[in-house]
Amino acid sequence: MSTSVTARKLNPQQKLILCDLFAALFCALFGAVYELFSHGVYAYGMLYAFAFPLALGVLPLLLLTMLRAPYPNRFARNAYHAGIAALTVGSLVSGALEIYGTTNPLTCVYWIAGGILTALGAAVYLVSLSKNRPEITAQRDCRPGR
């Protein structure tokens, strides 16, 4: 019962923050376990993969909440978080390859796609801010039950 009450209290922005926080925690745990079994060989990509959802996801969303800034629209959210996902997975994969002692040029796809999508999401949000569209405000999207 307490869970459903808690869930009802969370608005979409808070849910998104929790999702990013969970992703960051998962990456930190995954990296720690992977490093544990990698015979002391370490890779920054594996160690710091959690920084992408934390620095690009949790912190900006917290900032928006604190500033009471408008909540990003769905396109901006999707593009931005797809970018974070690509960067995070790219970091983990690059780390795993580095620990194994190999490389693959295809890993650059993660960085390029992640960078473009994240920038696209942020740009769409900024444009929407400049147009001051009321339909994407935090107040509207964050009403309980929406």
Binding site: N78, V89, L106, T107
Partner: peptide
Amino acid sequence: GFAVLFGLALLAFTGYLLADT
């Protein structure tokens, strides 16, 4: 829908990359 589709695409690409490696 987008999250699921993108997640699947990311998974497929990662699978190919690891197989290629």
